[in-house]
Design a protein around this nucleic acid. Sequence first.
RNA 1: UCCCCUGUAGCUCAGCGGUAGAGCGGGCGGCUGUUAACCGCUAGGUCGUAGGUUCGAAUCCUACCGGGGGAGCCA
Length: 471
Amino acid sequence: MPAHRTRIQDLLSAETSGDVPGPVNVKGWVKTVRSSGGVAFVQINDGSTLADLQIVVDANCPDYSLVNALTTGCSVSADGNLQDSLGRGQKYEIAAASLELLGGADPEEYPLQKKRHTLEFLRELAHLRPRTNTFGAVARVRNAMAFGIHKFFQERGFLYIQTPIITASDAEGAGAMFRATTLDLNNLPQAGGQVDNDADFFGRPAFLTVSGQLEAEIFAQSMSDVYTFGPTFRAENSNTSRHLAEFWMVEPEVAFCDLDGLAQLAEDFLRSIFAHVLETCPEDMDFFNRFYDKELIQTLEDIANSDFERMTYTEAVAALQASGESFEYPVEWGADLQSEHERYLTERKVGRPVIVTDYPSRIKAFYMRLNSPAPGDQGETVRAMDVLVPRIGEIIGGSQREERLDVLQRRMAEAGLDDAPYWWYLDLRRYGTAPHAGFGLGFERTVQFATGMQNIRDIIAFPRTPRNAEF
RNA sequence: UCCCCUGUAGCUCAGCGGUAGAGCGGGCGGCUGUUAACCGCUAGGUCGUAGGUUCGAAUCCUACCGGGGGAGCCA
């Protein structure tokens, strides 16, 4: 009896069945059971790879009678030798010497069939859907991409930093925040006719972070090259296939870097992580290519192997106006680009990712660095960039930060912001200020793009959206 | 938050004013290596909820709740 479980991936990746001598132990969850005469076929999956393993149980196995009790969803353990499969459809199979039922799954109640389910139905079964092919593949690809992200930055000497999840500062412009409080909402302490925030846990209002950027800037102004990778929260009432109330964001922040350097970093970064996932998850990527997007792999390979298009906002507006397209929203210098405009640029105009830079200051955040005027501009612009990709639209938003104290203070005043809560942010400009830049990447959107999945709720294990926080 | 679509058996759907249906899944029985196996039999539903119109409502109307698509906000 083998002492340790062998992962299915390790068995299936063997060069020949002879490379796995002697009996092995396998464990997993039953996908389907077929029987024919005196032979039963138990197909199991253990999550280590997309492929199932077929266990052959015949009358020679003392536990043969057990197969009648096996149904989809059971967990089992089997010992036996790996052999070349006698049937078609799989290379190897296990000839069971013994079989054990670890946990049953009442077939009258177990909700997963061996047939295909809709993604909408599976969304209600977040505790069971990782057992399906699609969600197993998403979990593995998501894992590989997280690793690829760390690998990219670590190989470039970036420091992984952890910024707070609970924060008292509200990164301007990033949207509505969730309040984090220990106050009794049914009996709020009052002071001077208002809620007494001094009685709250932190002695002041606190929130769940919408971005680690401002804190990351602190470390960029000391460690030079840093990145964050963690959860962020937006209390926006957004009901789309691209928004979550809780999502993961990657935010590099780089000292002594301008917008051109940042755009290059963003491009290298995206190309690197797509190449990484193609290389490390070939079976899963084939699966997505077959069932979700027939051009997925081709698209990702193209991105990994070709340069991104660059254009300024002013050039983008000119291109949109010259396109002859009839857009629902008018295109005019000074207005933000709408989804339809972004999609035209990346999908129709260039057919690959586009980096749009130098947006009007009026539509961007106060911390973005003010430009000197360029030809064609019809107003102030800032050193901001958006990376647009087909189907998803904006996948990265970033900017060179305003490092000049006087300009920053002027911009904050124009935005109607009070200096006081930003005292430490301004201090960074008072003491050894340095040019720096950073961007934010929505992790789920990136995985969504890489898998071809239509809905972001199928990219995160336990999606938080308005009116939905089950599990 | 706005616009459009949608909610009928465990799942996917048909039925769209007159006695609630199919396929899959489940149960039972066949089948000497199967491949989302195959063949036969069978059980299973207050038609999202609450009102309203009507002799009669799954079907028409209203509100609310859930789901989907699109938009806005953004990552």
